[in-house]
């Protein structure tokens, strides 16, 4: 009989994937907020007239970044779904391997051709582990790219804050929108940082 501790250890991968999936969903939600805030900023900048042209450009770029972040999260979601399937397959292989290992008696093991069965199961588990490693590395790469997008977003949000000062009568409103954008991008970056750290821990 498996102990609960053994089973919990084996499901650690699945728990890590669940946390990564939660992080991705969080990024998508916040990126959607960035998109709306950037749209709001573009509309506000119209009221600032020619003085707010710079702010408008920065806001449009931020909107583009939010789209690219959402696309990146879609790719990550596909990868995570594959990982859930592969972790489940590996757990099933491991469980079956455990049951066959518990077969007793030399004659039974020989009649049952167990060395071949156990070898095949171990080969399958090694293949699935290698595949999971590849998926983790691909996820890490995509999360790092998304983080670089966030860096660009933070730079743009700082530019928007500077440009807001030239907005004349609309300057206070533009500044408020620019601060909201910066805060949302920072939140996305923090969540992605946690996702990447989770991947590094799972791969260590």
């Amino acid at each position: 009989m498996h102990s609960n501790i053994e089973m919990a250890a084996r499901s650690a991968d699945l728990h890590a994937i669940v946390r990564i999936g939660d992080g991705i969903r969080g990024v998508v939600d916040t990126a959607r907020e960035v998109n709306l805030a950037a749209l709001n900023a573009m509309l506000s900048s119209r009221r600032g007239g020619d003085n707010a042209v710079g702010f408008r450009v920065a806001s449009a770029e931020l909107r583009e970044i939010s789209h690219r972040l959402m696309d990146a999260m879609q790719d990550l979601t596909v990868l995570v779904s594959s990982m859930v399937s592969e972790v489940a397959q590996r757990q099933r292989r491991q469980r079956n391997h455990d049951y066959f290992q518990r077969v007793e008696g030399e004659r039974a093991r020989a009649n049952g051709n167990l060395p071949d069965i156990l070898g095949r199961q171990e080969g399958d588990m090694a293949r699935l582990s290698a595949l999971l490693g590849q998926r983790r590395r691909a996820l890490h790469l995509k999360a790092s790219r998304a983080l670089r997008l966030c860096d660009q977003g933070l730079t743009l949000s700082r530019s928007a804050l500077v440009e807001a000062a030239y907005g004349g009568a609309s300057a206070p409103a533009l500044k408020q929108v620019a601060e909201q954008l910066a805060q949302s991008i920072r939140s996305v970056a923090e969540t992605l940082g946690r996702v990447r750290a989770e991947l590094e821990e799972a791969g260590s």
């Binding site: 066959f100 077969v103 007793e104 008696g105 039974a108 009649n111 049952g112």
Partner: peptide, 16 residues
């Protein structure tokens, strides 16, 4: 109970 069933069966019979 698979391990004990398989052990008992294969000890006295060709499971194939």
């Amino acid at each position: 109970i698979f391990p004990v069933v398989f052990s008992a069966l294969a000890a006295g019979f060709d499971p194939r």
